[in-house]
Amino acid sequence: MRNQISIVFLLQLLLFSCSGTISTVKKEYTLNTSLKLKSDWRINSKEWILKNDTIIGTGSPSEWGVLESKKKLPKNYEIEFKANMTKESLFEVMLNLEKGNYIRTYLYQIDQNIVIGKGVYDKNSNEYGKRGGKSLFNKPIELQNNKWYSVKIKVQNNQLLFSVDNKTSLECSLENKNLSQTGKLGFITNGEVKIIDLKIKTI
């Protein structure tokens, strides 16, 4: 009996270590080395770097800087980090990116809103209509450059919660809005953004 329990435990460990997701039940994912950035994410080193525990992304209004994870997000997950938009107006978190579709969760300075939307992403094109997409929900928030914001995103039982500084939040049902329910994680900037304390965990 004891041997059977040990075998089951070892199989579970093996499954978690070989998991196709960026985070597992047993382990909270953090990004803290340049080696991890290169091995876990699809990057253009001219757009995204890791410097002194800070992930720095650069892009432009005509050519967005995109960072995309190589592994899928778990079915239910929580993402936390701090972000600082040092240049331009848009910082976006791509959720459940799969087959060119994703959920847009972003901070938008021009409209002074946080937004949930339905996005499309063609990694081979910067043309209008092939990146980004329509907004579904938004809420006013005062946003400015060179200020740190605490971002929390939670997806559980197909319900999405997106909050900034624990005081401005949006919620929606993935099913009701026909939003992508599985896929990878990504980040987009149309200027420069700094990210620290990134944590991704299975819930």
Rank of each mutant, 00 (worst) to 15 (best):
K71P: 02
P74C: 02
P74H: 03
K75D: 15
K75A: 07
N76W: 05
N76V: 09
E78N: 11
I79T: 07
E80L: 07
E80Q: 14
F81N: 02
S89Q: 11
S89N: 12
F91P: 03
F91M: 03
E92N: 04
E92K: 01
V93E: 03
L95S: 04
N96S: 10
N96M: 11
L97G: 07
K99R: 14
K99T: 13
G100H: 13
G100S: 13
N101S: 09
R104Q: 15
T105M: 03
Y106A: 00
L107D: 04
Q109G: 05
I110S: 06
I110H: 07
Q112T: 11
Q112S: 13
Q112G: 07
N113C: 03
I114S: 04
I114Q: 00
I114Y: 01
V115Q: 00
I116D: 00
G117Y: 06
G117A: 08
K118C: 02
V120D: 07
Y121H: 10
K123E: 15
K123M: 13
N124L: 10
N126Y: 14
E127D: 14
Y128R: 11
G129S: 10
G129F: 09
K130N: 14
K130S: 11
G132W: 02
G132Y: 02
G133M: 06
K134R: 14
S135R: 10
L136V: 15
L136H: 07
F137T: 08
F137E: 14
F137D: 05
N138Q: 11
K139G: 04
P140I: 13
I141W: 06
E142T: 15
E142F: 13
E142G: 08
L143I: 08
L143H: 01
L143P: 00
Q144A: 10
K147G: 06
W148H: 12
Y149F: 09
Y149H: 10
S150Q: 12
S150N: 14
S150G: 03
V151E: 03
K152T: 11
I153M: 04
I153V: 13
V155I: 15
N157K: 13
N157G: 09
Q159W: 09
F162N: 05
V164P: 03
D165M: 07
N166A: 10
K167Y: 08
T168W: 09
T168A: 07
E171G: 06
S173K: 09
N176E: 15
K177E: 15
N178Y: 08
N178Q: 14
N178G: 10
S180Y: 06
Q181K: 15
Q181M: 13
Q181V: 15
Q181Y: 07
T182W: 05
K184I: 12
G186I: 04
F187K: 01
T189P: 01
T189W: 00
G191R: 04
